[in-house]
Design a protein around this nucleic acid. Structure first.
Lengths: 144, 144
DNA sequence: GAAAATTGGATGCGTTTGTAACTTTTTTGA
DNA sequence: TCAAAAAAGTTACAAACGCATCCAATTTTC
């Protein structure tokens, strides 16, 4: 009969994950928020359009794992702020192809570099092996 | 001159952390939400009071890294639902000592066990070494 | 080929959250 | 010693979210 170990919130992986996620997101948030007035969902939408090219809102939903109402509102805000434009697709008029404008593209280029550098610095404190383990564990837990 | 590697959202650690945090929290959420009608902040408050004994809202704020308005609202809800009671401290009448009721204590005992089991299952798919690395990396990133 | 079901997307509503202001009590310091 | 600053906690307000609903276009089905 082994006594169960004492268990603190710090031992609870979902809690630790939340703290780490909040902390890292908070730090990077200043990039897209302060410079471009974007929210997190907007930055993710810009990322997808910039990284993978024009696509519909539906595609962003599935690729970015975002709910369609969040994407819809993010797209509206990005359109209002001239980061993207919608264009109709004649083969199915329910769909609208989303494309970054010049402004959107340069914001993407800037944020893309910033994200890469930020990530490099964030995981740079760990060894190559630690990075691999971290990545594998997170991917698994996230269900990717 | 090395070409930079292509960089996907899945390579961006804050994004991965968010997905993993959301996924794991979502699964555990059903325990405290469905059984006790609690929100996440309320569960955390209950955890602290159950695990470390009666304390003030201020102490919960600093120990749980929660903003005082969130704690204030969580405490109100928990009090309304009879999970805790407030009692005045005569040495400083700004403070109120928060204690779990019997109901609160049994909810804590139940959730505490559930959390322990949930965590064991979540990280049980990893090796001992992976668990250590994951814990170390998350703790570091979270700034603990 | 028209009614029914489905799909992409937008919107309304209630809930949750963050920020700032506010109340009350305690501490500080001129 | 008493006015100002600070601290614990609450509240007001606006922004953001999730959910359900709705609309318009398309596909399915009988």
């Amino acid at each position: 009969m082994t006594e169960p170990e004492p268990f603190d919130l710090r031992d609870f992986t979902p809690y630790l994950l939340n703290l780490a996620a909040e902390q890292s997101s908070l730090t990077f948030q200043s990039y897209y928020k302060d410079r471009y007035g974007m929210l997190r969902t907007e930055w993710r939408v810009v990322f997808h359009l910039g990284r993978y090219g024009p696509m519909t809102a539906k595609e962003i939903c599935s690729r970015a794992r975002l709910h369609k109402t969040k994407v819809s509102r993010a797209v509206s805000a990005l359109e209002k702020n001239r980061f993207l434009v919608k264009s109709a697709l004649e083969q199915d008029r329910r769909l609208e192809l989303l494309k970054l404008t010049k402004t959107g593209q340069s914001a993407f280029a800037d944020l893309y570099d910033a994200a890469r550098r930020f990530d490099a610095e964030l995981v740079g404190q760990f060894t190559e092996n630690e990075r691999e383990v971290l990545r594998r564990c997170l991917t698994r837990i996230a269900g990717l």
